[in-house]
Amino acid sequence: MMAARRYQPMSRAQFGIAVLCMLLVVVGSNILVQVPLNDWLTWGGLSYPVAFLVTDLLNRRFGPAAARRVAWFGFAAALAVSVWVASPRIALASGLAYICAQLVDIQVFDRLRDQRWWRAPLVSGTLGAVLDTAVFFSVAFAATGAPWVTWMMGDLAIKLAVNVSMLAPFRALMWNLAKPASV
């Protein structure tokens, strides 16, 4: 049996900053997903994968319980704001896709965290992006007449590429986050 891991406790300020980051990423992406670049891509596909970077960094430093707590608070805050800045359908689709994908990302990351440094964020981010994209686009745009299937495929391709590109900032930030905060 494996010994229980010890994680650094998350302060209220760190929690607040993490929730604010999630809120900004999700609300910004909900606005940007309504602005197509072409028939294959919306701007939201470029911004949303940052949510997985935030979650994975939280999971690495503070553990899965803290990451889930931030995901749930981020979900509530983003849903509340998204209703006013995006359509109710976009807000609902985003909220549902976000919480499903974040919880999967957190679980998979935690299971893979002791393997090579890149495996947990790459695999969990990929699975999260696939789930998020499928749920979001089918709820947000099905039966609207919009080219949602091609948007979904284009957004997924971009999310997967951005997920890979997030490995470099994850690696750089992971070492900084591993250090205990100075008092």
Rank of each mutant, 00 (worst) to 15 (best):
N59P: 03
F141H: 08
W84Y: 13
Y48C: 10
A181C: 05
D155E: 10
N163R: 05
V70P: 03
T150Y: 02
A120L: 02
L160F: 03
A168M: 13
A101K: 06
V104G: 11
C100D: 03
L173T: 11
L122Y: 01
W84V: 13
V130D: 05
V33E: 08
G44D: 08
P121H: 10
A51Y: 00
A76V: 11
F15I: 07
L41D: 07
F52C: 13
V19C: 08
T126P: 00
L20R: 05
T133H: 03
V108D: 04
P121D: 12
S138M: 11
V149D: 12
P64F: 05
A93Q: 07
F141Q: 08
M174L: 10
P49H: 03
A181P: 02
C100L: 12
R68Q: 11
A51S: 13
T133Q: 04
F136C: 12
K179P: 01
V85S: 14
L32Q: 10
A120R: 00
N59F: 00
A161E: 01
A97P: 02
R5A: 15
L23R: 01
A168H: 08
P64C: 06
Y98C: 08
M10Q: 06
M174H: 14
A172W: 12
A120H: 00
C100Y: 00
L58Y: 02
V108I: 15
N30F: 02
R5K: 15
V183D: 13
A78L: 01
R12H: 13
L96G: 09
L112S: 10
S82L: 08
P36W: 00
S87L: 08
G95Y: 00
K179Q: 12
S11N: 07
Q8V: 08
W40I: 12
A157D: 07
N59H: 04
W72G: 06
T150D: 12
V26Y: 01
T150R: 14
M153W: 09
L41P: 06
T133C: 10
L20K: 05
A65V: 14
R113F: 03
Y98T: 08
N163L: 07
R171L: 13
I106R: 01
Q107G: 09
T126V: 10
L127T: 02
R171S: 15
S182T: 10
L92D: 08
L96T: 15
V104P: 04
A91I: 06
R111S: 14
L96H: 04
R116T: 14
T42L: 06
Q34T: 12
G154H: 03
S29H: 05
R116Q: 14
A71W: 00
G45V: 02
Q34H: 04
D110Q: 09
T42A: 06
F141D: 08
F170Y: 13
I90V: 15
N163A: 15
L58I: 09
Q8I: 04
T144K: 09
V33Q: 10
L20D: 06
I31E: 11
L58V: 06
S82H: 05
A134V: 13
A86N: 11
P180F: 07
L103T: 15
S94A: 11
L32G: 09
V81Q: 04
A120I: 00
R111G: 14
I99L: 13
A65P: 01
R60I: 05
W175S: 15
S165A: 15
W175N: 15
L79W: 03
P64Y: 08
A66M: 05
W148Q: 05
A178C: 09
R171N: 12
I90N: 09
G74I: 02
N59L: 06
S47M: 10
D110C: 04
T126D: 03
M166N: 13
V164W: 00
